[in-house]
Design a binder for these strands. Structure first.
Length: 542
DNA sequence: TCTCCCACATG
DNA sequence: TCATGTGGGAG
């Protein structure tokens, strides 16, 4: 099966934008039924019904697994550790999908997009805005290794993305999703139709996007909130070694042959902070100077001016308190209007009322609105690897859906927004690219919109007029320009081969494949770090 | 002061 | 072997 996921998704991105507009204008955006709160916020795009290919895409329902657990984290302000080597998410992203056509093939993938354009800091026991966000990382998508598989397969059991890993290594060679520390992100699930007669590259593709607000998180290199640490320890089987008696606060450490309880610095710090806050509340008059009755080694904690919070945007009580997950449910029809889509993408970033071009306005949720849902996706990235199907034992007709844990297939689409890092895009997969790569990224990636740059830049990513030429561009090293080697091209993509089990040598395990030779996206032996150079200059409107 | 990295222990 | 959080220390 030869597929070009990127192109499919690209078309979808446009469709979402277009259709969403209609919905908003029709005042249907907020017409949510209570029951829908159990579902994700969804956007869907599909081809005109006349094609007969999109009859079910908008009927697909996705329910987040362990939603209660997610909510517990969410209420405390979910944090996800990111490391150079890549760290899994916990809770892991697992969903129950229903409403799919049993015989239709779908591709399931996840991307993690900036929830806003702020950088955060954990101060005074709560998250606060600490400035402007760092330039968006190369967008990557994590494609479930079972993809593409039939609706019957996906709906048979939980679909797990537990092997998705997050990293802060901008040059990550493993296909992990790259994030910036201390930034807020929102995972999104994309379901793309991948019928044989609806192959990648075709305009007649449909997809839908599901967003579970409770899965939003702030990326960190070490946990900031003790509550989160405890929730992780209490719920993550891999961390049970840290479960101690006393509410998990204490654990036994063996050093020098002795056993003694250990209290993490996080716990101490936060208790002190808490203590200080309490005292401060009573002594705000000035009795407590910040060097009061607290442990001297943590004076810096107590020295935080209480008024500090006034200079920031307190994320009270926790960063996610933002919005009701049930606020939106979108389903759109592709209207095939490239021009309109282009305009949509050129809307300035963070323009709540940017309704300026009302026809492109996206009804936004209370909190993560702008980059996330109120704008079309503009950067793209595909990255995936080692996703696994929960209990997936059956193999769909040659799709090899079984034993997905052995799969190491991942697709990556690097996003290279023109404005990122002074025009010098990251090229994590540089060594892997070849001029014959072929997986054109197309999944809308709002990451690019997180930077306060005019969204004019975005237009070059989200719209996908068929007329535009798609050229594969070898990525350039970080220090080089993001300009593609092929004039007039706008897309950098690659198809890489990865030997399962040897992720440490990715640079040598990848091999490019032409579009025509592209193996099935579900072929575990292939990875697809496809980069999309976002610079408008790389697009053509032929 | 804050953030990140890495060796380490644990399961 | 891998996935965790910890804690010391670097920057």
């Amino acid at each position: 099966m030869k597929l070009n996921a990127s192109e499919m998704l690209q078309e979808k991105a446009s469709a979402v934008t277009d259709e969403r507009m209609s919905r908003v204008q029709a005042g249907r955006e907020t017409d949510l039924l209570p029951e829908e709160s159990q579902l994700s916020q969804t956007t869907a795009a599909s081809v005109p019904s006349s094609t007969g290919l999109d009859q079910n895409i908008e009927n697909i329902k996705v329910v987040l697994n362990e939603r209660e657990l997610w909510k517990r984290f969410h209420e405390a302000g979910t944090e996800m550790i990111i490391t150079k080597a890549g760290r899994r998410m916990f809770p892991s992203y697992k969903v129950k999908v229903t409403g799919m056509n049993p015989k239709t093939k779908y591709i399931l993938l996840i991307d993690v997009v900036p929830a806003d354009d702020h950088r955060y800091k954990f101060c005074d026991n709560k998250w606060m805005v600490a400035g402007k966000a760092e330039p968006a990382m190369p967008g990557r998508l994590y494609v479930h290794p079972d993809s593409p598989a039939t609706g019957a397969h996906w709906t048979r059991q939980l679909v797990s993305f537990q092997k998705l890993k997050l990293t802060n290594n901008h040059l990550d060679p493993f296909g992990h999703i790259i994030l910036n520390s201390m930034h807020k992100y929102q995972p999104r699930l994309h379901i793309v139709k991948a019928d044989e007669n609806n192959a990648f590259g075709s305009k007649n593709t449909a997809y839908c996007t599901h967003v579970f607000p409770e899965t939003a998180f702030i990326s960190v290199t070490s946990y900031q909130n003790h509550k989160i640490t405890q929730l992780k320890i209490e719920n993550n089987p891999f961390a049970k070694g840290f479960r101690g008696s006393e509410e998990g606060d204490l654990r036994i450490s063996r050093l020098d042959g002795k056993d003694y309880p250990v209290i993490s610095k996080n716990i101490v710090r936060q208790r002190i902070i808490s203590s200080h806050s309490h005292l401060a509340g009573k002594l705000r008059a000035g009795a407590l100077t910040g060097h009061g009755p607290v442990l001297s080694s943590y004076q810096y904690e107590t020295g935080i001016p209480l008024s500090n919070s006034e200079s920031h945007h307190p994320l009270t009580p926790h960063f996610p308190q933002s919005r009701d997950p049930s606020l939106m449910y979108h389903c759109f029809k592709h209207r095939d209007n490239p021009r309109q889509l282009e305009l949509e993408c050129k809307r300035p970033y963070l323009e709540p009322s940017s309704v300026g071009s009302e026809e492109h306005y996206f009804c936004s949720p209370p909190s993560y609105e702008s980059p996330l849902l109120s704008h079309s996706y503009c950067t793209e990235a595909l990255a995936s690897r080692e996703a696994c199907m929960y209990g997936g034992a059956e193999t769909e007709s040659g799709s090899g859906a079984a034993d997905k844990d052995d799969l190491a297939m991942w697709a990556t689409v690097q996003a290279y927004p023109r404005y990122s890092i002074d025009g010098v895009p990251y090229q994590p997969f540089t060594p892997h690219f070849t001029s014959s790569a072929s997986v054109h990224s197309v999944v809308p990636h709002p990451a690019s919109s997180m930077v306060s740059q005019p969204q004019a830049d975005l237009g070059v990513y989200s719209t996908a007029p068929v007329q535009r030429s798609l050229s594969v561009v070898p990525p350039s090293p970080p220090s080089s320009s993001c300009s593609p080697a092929v004039p007039g091209s706008r897309n950098t993509s690659g198809l890489y081969h990865k030997k399962p089990g040897s992720p440490l040598q990715p640079h040598r395990e990848f091999s490019a494949c032409s579009t025509q030779e592209a193996p099935s996206i579900r072929d575990s032996s292939y990875q697809y770090p496809a980069g999309l150079i976002g610079a408008g200059s790389h697009w053509t409107n032929n």
